[in-house]
Design a protein around this nucleic acid. Structure first.
Length: 511
RNA sequence: GCCCCGUUCGUCUAGAGGCCUAGGACAUCAGGUUUUCAUCCUGAAGAUCAGGGGUUCGAAUCCCCUACGGGGUACCA
């Protein structure tokens, strides 16, 4: 058996959408599982839609995700070039072959004539509005013109397209690994344009088939939006005599909007506060910025996990999968057939799972920039920072949230939560806290373990109860009713700072 | 309009004719643990399997129809 070869073939018309990322991921898992190759091919046959920076964006996105292409424009390979615009000369030969065999024909109709045809058919209530077997003999093409006239026009440099000639009333069957057999009557297909003389480039359909054939692609795994044109592709393989080595098809379900209807779009991200792109993207024309998973604080491994499970599962109750897990467990027959909605909350939960598994060292590296953006003084030693991060990491989904859970280690409270004050701060509180400060000042062991014991002893020996002391002490140190254990906080900020915060609170809140 | 694909808790999904009084996860709610908050633990609620017809002793699972959703219908990919 030949080696498995799959490709991810985006067109550089803008930033890569997470639906595209998921498609690439499934291709990657499938290839790696079977020891095959994963190829990147840039489908830039529509010169008018080219967006500068889009290809670089795609490469960077996969770099961030840690997904490597075995072949592609930036890594090379034996089947290059990997940009269709650079493969220009390869396609014409096949167009000529189809033309010579009468499987395709020249068409000279202008856009206006095509539009006129459609309006005419519409008013006639024709069953189909297509350029196909039922209409092509009424149009200006090499089937309706004399050989000489065609020659004359071509020589004269008249613009033309080459269309595939589809015979009506044939059943074309597409074998899909996810959906099974999909049968379509050829009368429903139109004579698609395969080649445009305007830019000397093939359209997607032809380029796609030629490239997949020449690159020895064994499996085409792509979005469901391609399913309707799959019969055309099967026909092209047949026409070109490549049907026996035709790749196997799999059409993936689409990613849908989290609310309402339709497929996921760029706007949804802005509206609902979640990224639609892997990385931030600045539109070169409008300069509009769209945020990405990376910038929102998602880890790349969490992102892969989230996307992988939108339309696939391994049949068990496992939900956390490493890349290696996904490679070993992925299979196309467990891909679902229906579209999936992106769930922001579950995505955050996934990120939380990955965050918890990261070491304090790694998280501290990631947290330091956020700390610098917020903290002024004091700056703790590295080891202390790691400790702080370790104390709060289970409370956050994203690294940037660490600051909001740990700011009180760095900065003394400037105000005190009104409702907590009202509920907990009694007339006796200043006296109790004053007493506590007094004994605390004499204490030399400021380890977290000892402080815990110390507080318990203080409360017990004075016949206070826990809530009476702890809640108000927390108010002094944190400013509100949340945060890490008080003994941990005091151990980190130290004796002087602890006493200062207690005094400040007693003065500010009063009796 | 026409064609193709789909339809199980709010969301992601398990389910390949009897194991389904339909399981899990996220979210929600309630209890518990905790010096607060969060984590964590336990539990609850939540899907008459889109609706209707068949087939079968038996259907979420097979077939048909309808509805709804999605996709396609370009000299875009």
């Amino acid at each position: 058996m030949s080696t498995i070869r799959v490709r991810f073939a985006p067109s550089p018309t803008g930033p890569l959408h997470i639906g595209g990322v998921r498609t690439a991921l499934y291709n990657y898992f499938f290839a790696k599982k079977h020891g095959g190759q994963f190829v990147l091919r840039i489908e830039d046959t529509d010169s008018s839609r080219f967006v500068p920076g889009a290809e670089e964006y795609i490469v960077e996105a996969f770099k961030w995700l840690g997904i490597q292409f075995d072949e592609g424009p930036h890594v090379g390979g034996n089947y290059g070039p990997y940009r269709q615009s650079e493969r220009k000369e390869m396609y014409r030969k096949y167009v000529d072959e189809l033309l010579a065999q009468g499987l395709a024909y020249y068409a000279f109709d202008t856009p206006e004539e095509l539009a006129a045809m459609r309006t005419r058919l519409e008013t006639e209530k024709a069953p189909s509005l297509q350029y196909d077997a039922s209409t092509r003999m009424t149009m200006r093409n090499s089937l309706t013109m004399s050989r000489d006239e065609v020659k004359y026009r071509l020589r004269g440099g008249e613009q033309y397209v080459v269309r595939i000639k589809i015979e009506p009333n044939e059943t074309i069957v597409v074998q899909d690994l996810i959906r099974g057999e999909v049968a379509v009557n050829s009368s429903l297909l139109d004579d698609k344009v395969l080649w445009k003389s305007s830019d000397g480039l093939p359209t997607y359909h032809l380029a796609n088939i030629v490239d997949d054939h020449k690159m020895k692609i064994t499996h085409v795994i792509r979005g469901e939006e391609w399913l309707p044109s799959a019969p055309l592709h099967v026909l092209l393989y047949r026409y070109l005599g490549w049907e026996n080595t035709m790749p196997k098809f799999s059409h993936l379900p689409l990613l849908l909007k989290p609310d309402g209807n339709g497929k996921l779009s760029k706007r949804d991200g802005d509206k609902l506060g979640f990224p639609v792109f892997p990385l931030e993207w600045t539109d070169p024309k409008t300069l509009e910025i769209s945020t990405g998973f990376r910038e929102m604080g998602y880890f790349s491994d969490a992102t892969i996990n989230i996307l992988a499970l939108l339309g696939w599962n391994d049949g068990t109750e496992q939900e956390i999968f490493s890349i290696d897990d996904l490679i070993s467990k992925f299979s196309l027959d467990r891909v679902s057939k229906h579209g999936a909605r992106f769930d922001v909350q579950k995505a955050a939960w996934f990120n939380h799972q990955y965050l918890m598994k990261k070491s304090n060292e790694v998280l501290t590296d990631l947290f330091i920039p956020f700390m610098h953006a917020n903290a002024v003084v004091p700056i703790f030693e590295r080891k202390v920072l790691e400790k702080i991060v370790g104390l709060v990491k289970e409370r956050v989904n994203f690294v940037h949230e660490i600051w909001s859970q740990s700011h009180f280690f760095f900065v003394a409270p400037t105000s005190y939560d009104e409702t907590v004050v009202k509920k907990r701060w009694t007339p006796e509180t200043p006296e109790i806290l004053g007493k506590f400060a007094e004994v605390l000042e004499k204490e030399s062991d400021f380890s977290s373990e000892h402080l815990e014991q110390f507080m318990a002893n203080f409360i017990k020996s004075n016949n206070y109860n826990m809530g009476q002391v702890m809640n108000c002490l927390r108010l002094c140190l944190v400013g509100e009713a949340k945060g890490a254990h008080l003994n941990d906080i005091m151990a980190i900020i130290g004796k002087d700072e602890s006493l200062r915060r207690i005094q400040t609170a007693i003065i500010k809140i009063g009796g």
